[in-house]
């Protein structure tokens, strides 16, 4: 079996584990932890989509992951600015 194929599957499994860990982290009591966990989930999902699209030659997955990374960043920063207050 091709080693590149195996390593892509291993990466996807690792990213799924990371998504569960980030969900656990987002359940901690502070708002910032929820923000951190949700941003990690979004990025992990985007990279998993990249690997999945590479496996099955789905080119539009690349566009979806680009949008997820960019708009996830914008949303996280916007929420952080609002949560930080005016001081």
């Amino acid at each position: 079996m091709d080693i590149l194929l195996i390593s892509k599957y291993i990466l996807i499994i690792a990213l799924v584990i990371m998504m569960f860990a980030a969900l656990r982290v987002s359940a901690y009591k502070t708002t910032s932890m929820g923000l951190l966990g949700s941003s990690v989930v979004v990025v992990a999902f985007a990279v998993a989509l990249l690997a999945f699209g590479d496996l099955y030659n789905l080119t539009f997955y690349r566009d979806i992951s680009l949008a997820l990374i960019f708009f996830g960043f914008v949303g996280t920063v916007a929420f952080a600015v609002v949560a930080g207050g005016d001081k």
């Binding site: 502070t30 708002t31 910032s32 951190l36 941003s39 960043f73 996280t76 952080a80 930080g84």
Partner: peptide, 14 residues
Amino acid sequence: FTAHAIANAFYKSE
């Protein structure tokens, strides 16, 4: 930028 924004929000509010 994301990491700094989250840390800044946490410091200022919580």
